[in-house]
């Protein structure tokens, strides 16, 4: 079996490609090869030895879906891919749009629907959760700077400004809000989400839904170390039935099909959990899940290949991850090869 995986950007705000690949390669019954798909010739995952059999550069979907599909089919012609796992939020819409064409060519995927993506999008999550009785921080959507004036009527500073796909800033006053608004607008477009800031500890859940409402698996992690970008640099698996319950409820009501990550914060003031975000793909810490007993990326592949998958019933508590900054040494010839030919075999 040949599986292509995107998101090899294992940088300080890491894509999930490398941990997804490591998870699949750890599966005892996986017999096959991994092909890396990368948007940047400096993506660190390209340079990790024995991670992929071969890697290819692909164009950003924003450069045109036709061109994007053409490149994937050209790679397929060489590699005879069986399956693709897109791991980045920003490419999911494109993959959903072209999935029928990929399937016609013999490549399977296991993706959420457009409707499912919409339900959990940052600008719609509040309404969905409120209907489901899931606690979420108050938020307003800003599409121009004048919207920021309403912050003081709805919240008290500090508040969080979030881009529609990525990035968030905690701001303490109107001037800081304007700066963050402009940064997010330029990078991610509109709307910008202005959210109530809740102080507390962060908890995340990685899960997998089979598309019928069933949860195949879910693992709860508490962040132990958080970077200045808000990324968990270390975490530990815990057992929290409340968080598992909310995750199961979301997967059930949305009939979620694919991997996902739910981000929670436990209010230091009240002890209540608030759901901050639902990401429509596995998180960069997903490698913790197979090591705690739930190989969710491999289960996703099996679901996508129409194999029978039994739900996981539990996982090991107290399994930790500690992320590591580790310099890979390579040669200019290697960089030249991926930059000029768009292909690399280490």
């Amino acid at each position: 079996m040949k599986i292509a995986v995107t998101g090899l950007n294992a940088i300080d705000s890491p894509g999930p490609g490398v941990p997804v690949i490591r998870s699949i390669k750890d599966a005892k019954d996986f017999k096959g090869e991994i092909i890396g798909l990368s948007y940047d010739s400096l993506d660190p995952g390209l340079y990790i030895e024995k991670l992929t059999s071969k890697s290819y550069l692909i164009p950003y979907p924003s450069s045109g879906l036709e061109y994007f599909l053409e490149r994937l089919l050209a790679i397929h012609k060489i590699e005879k891919l069986d399956f693709i796992i897109p791991t980045l939020d920003s490419e999911l819409y494109a993959f959903i749009k072209i999935q029928d064409k990929l399937l016609e060519a013999g490549i399977k995927l296991f993706l959420p629907t457009f409707e499912q993506l919409e339900i959990r999008s940052k600008d719609k999550l509040f309404n969905f959760c409120t209907k489901q009785g899931i606690k979420v921080p108050k938020n307003i959507l800003a599409t121009n700077i004048s919207n920021l004036h309403s912050i003081q009527n709805n919240f008290s500073y500090p508040v969080v400004l979030k881009g529609i796909f990525y990035e968030a800033y905690i701001v303490n006053n109107f001037d800081e809000a304007v700066v963050a608004f402009n940064k997010l607008k330029q990078k991610w477009g509109f709307p910008i989400i202005v959210q109530e800031y809740i102080k507390g500890d962060e908890f995340n859940v990685v899960g997998l839904g089979d598309g019928t409402g069933k949860t195949i698996g879910a693992v709860v992690m508490r962040k132990l170390y958080i970077t200045d970008k808000g990324k968990g640099w270390s975490g530990v698996t815990i057992l929290d039935k409340t968080l598992l319950g909310v995750s199961n409820k979301f997967i059930l009501t949305s009939k979620w099909k694919s991997g996902l990550e739910l981000e929670f914060i436990k209010s230091a003031a009240t002890g209540e959990y608030f759901l901050l975000e639902i990401n429509p793909r596995f998180p960069a810490w997903v490698y913790l899940a197979p090591n705690a007993g739930q190989n969710l990326p491999w289960a996703l592949v099996k679901l996508g290949m129409d194999e029978k998958v039994t739900s996981f019933s539990n996982y090991e508590i107290g399994k930790m991850f500690v992320r590591c900054a580790w310099d890979l040494i390579t040669d200019m010839k290697v960089f030249e090869k991926i930059s000029t030919t768009g292909e690399l075999k280490l």
């Binding site: 508490r222 132990l224 975490g235 815990i238």
Partner: peptide, 10 residues
């Protein structure tokens, strides 16, 4: 070793 770990909260 006297290390306590609370399963429910980490």
């Amino acid at each position: 070793s006297g290390f306590l770990f609370l399963h429910t909260t980490g």
